[in-house]
Design a protein around this nucleic acid. Structure first.
Lengths: 205, 205
DNA sequence: CACAAAAGTAGACACTAGCAACATTGTTGT
DNA sequence: ACAACAATGTTGCTAGTGTCTACTTTTGTG
């Protein structure tokens, strides 16, 4: 008679990804501060020191989480922007970008906070690279808009930083409870239109 | 012969404020995550359980820190805005506000991150009130601008939220290493001017 | 097929937050 | 003046954590 307790093999198989999955669940449920390596090990059914083979450190795991968050965010942003058929409809694309960002941030509040937190491993280039990749998309939008004369042609990166900062700030205020979710859509809309008006070349009088 | 070891009285006298001071030093040096109640107790020269008489919880202390941070920020913002003599020079006042915020955030990076973090005690009304008070100032500026016709008259709070969000986002990007301090001044300047252009009533054509 | 590398385990250390029971000091009503 | 009480500190405990080292099992490879 085989014992009912499904004998797990000595080697887990794909512990690293399973740990990351468990970590994301824990993050969603209790926040980054509460996340415990030993807890994750228990969840996955492995000894308390096993995670150390895959993550040198608690922080290393959090960084990996942040990194995967940025790549996922990047994908969602890309998809949202590309859904706007007209490749040169800057207002629509910007709005799609901003809305997608805000959506991601609301659906992954704790993860977003972790991603934007300043306390990453000093040598964690992977996470900053992933962040830059996600952000870089808006530079492309802006650059295109400047080339077509819809935006002031100063510094494409600076202009991109500003709208990105606005969206970032909105989500930060949302997740810290300063604004209610209901106001979100309107807020993002006016933020984008105001930005476009503000960054547009001055009307000839 | 009195012993050299300055015999501390049983009662510390003002343990609460001393703890907060030590906490702020620790925050500045090692960040909120590293902050340990027992460490603070040692710093101040008191037993490990003494802080509990003044802060129910580690989080309670962090909340108190955040609250005092908001009131200090509010004072600095008020001072900066009032330094602009002309009471109705909206651009100058907005720029002063934004610059003061960014200055505070750079000089108190870890504290700012703590203040804007979402993980406050659910019933911590004091910190949200302090935050609202600091933020409320910009509403006054905006309202005045709208009354004088320099800004679109829609929703004063929404307009205020947007510029506030932008400044918030800029500091967040700064403290997470996305932008270098050197670019800060220029970034804030164009953010404010663009905002003013974008929120201004449409020019009659 | 031996044997080194990879992956998981067990135990220990130093540290933390939070709790309870006790000690000391201030304060206050009579 | 002083007893009672509240406020404040202290010591000792529990349960939990991250990280380290040494050991065991598996896997892959020359």
């Amino acid at each position: 008679m085989p014992d009912t307790t499904e004998r797990r093999p000595y080697h887990h198989g794909n512990l690293r990804t399973d740990l990351l999955d468990a970590a994301e669940r824990s993050l969603r449920a209790h926040g980054a501060e509460q996340l415990s390596l030993r807890d994750l090990a228990r969840d996955v059914g492995v000894s308390h020191a096993a995670p150390r083979r895959h993550f040198a450190d608690r922080r290393a795991l959090l960084d990996a989480l942040a990194e995967s968050g940025f790549t996922r965010l990047g994908e969602q942003l890309r998809a949202a922007v590309n859904e706007i058929g007209d490749e040169h409809d800057l207002p629509a694309r910007l709005l799609a970008f901003a809305s997608a960002y805000v959506l991601f941030a609301t659906e992954n509040a704790a993860l977003t906070e972790l991603m934007n937190s300043s306390k990453h491993r000093p040598g964690a280039t992977a996470v900053t690279e992933a962040a830059a990749a996600a952000f870089g998309q808006i530079s492309d939008l802006i650059e295109d808009g400047q080339e077509r004369g819809e935006l002031e042609g100063d510094d494409p990166e600076e202009t991109g930083l500003i709208i990105y900062a606005t969206v970032l700030g909105i989500t930060s205020m949302l997740n810290s409870g300063m604004i209610e979710p209901a106001r979100l859509e309107g807020l993002v809309g006016t933020a984008v239109t105001q930005f476009l008006r503000g960054a547009r070349p001055a009307e000839p009088r």
